[in-house]
C-alpha cells in the first residue's frame, strides 16, 4: 500500500513501489487528464507537478514520492500560475488535437513558477521535452509570454 498526496487529498492505493505514478493516477485514482504518450519520458504528455516542479509521471515510481505534493492537470487551474496559463491557452486557442496539452500546460506552469518572465531561451529549456504532433509550438510560446504579462 502506498499513500500519495494528490491535488491536496491523500490517496492510499494498492500498488507496488515500482509502479509508475502515471498508472496509479489513471488506472487506480481515475484521474485520466494526464496522458500516456511514450512511456519513456521522451514526449512530456504525462507531466505532473511534484512540489511544484514538472516531473514525467511515466518514469516516476510511486514508491519514490513519499509525502511530496502531486498536482495534476485536474487541479492546476486552482494555482495562480496554472489559472493564468490556462486562460492564455484559451485566449489564443493554442490547442489543436489536444493530446499533449495537459503536459504542455503543466510544464508551462512549472516554468512560470520558477521564472516569472521567461524569454525564448527559458521557454526552450523548459518546454523542449514536451512535443506536439500538431505543431502548436508557436502558439505555446506566445501563450506563455501572454500569461507572464497578465496580472
Amino acid at each position: 500500500m502506498v499513500t500519495l498526496q494528490i491535488n491536496g487529498q491523500a490517496h492510499t492505493i494498492d500498488a507496488p513501489d515500482d509502479m509508475p505514478l502515471l498508472w496509479a493516477l489513471r488506472d487506480i485514482v481515475g484521474l485520466t487528464g494526464t496522458k500516456f504518450g511514450c512511456g519513456i519520458a521522451q514526449c512530456g504528455a504525462c507531466t505532473v507537478h511534484v512540489d511544484g516542479k514538472a516531473v514525467r509521471s511515466c518514469m516516476l515510481p510511486v514508491g519514490a514520492i513519499g509525502n511530496r505534493a502531486i498536482t495534476t492537470i485536474e487541479a492546476i487551474g486552482d494555482t495562480p500560475n496554472g489559472a493564468k496559463i490556462q486562460k492564455a491557452w484559451l485566449d489564443i486557442e493554442v490547442v489543436q488535437c489536444g493530446y499533449c496539452q495537459s503536459g504542455q500546460i503543466m510544464s508551462a506552469t512549472a516554468l512560470l513558477n520558477r521564472t516569472p518572465n521567461p524569454d525564448d531561451s527559458d521557454i526552450d529549456a523548459a518546454m523542449a521535452g514536451n512535443i506536439c504532433r500538431c505543431g502548436t509550438y508557436v502558439r505555446i510560446r506566445q501563450a506563455i509570454k501572454n500569461a507572464a504579462k497578465s496580472v
Binding site: A41, L60, A128
Partner: peptide, 16 residues
C-alpha cells in the same frame, strides 16, 4: 533540453 532534461534536470539531480 529535449531528450535528457526531463529526467536528469538542469541541475543533474534527477527529480524522477
Amino acid at each position: 533540453a529535449g531528450a535528457c532534461a526531463s529526467c536528469h534536470d538542469w541541475t543533474g539531480v534527477s527529480p524522477v
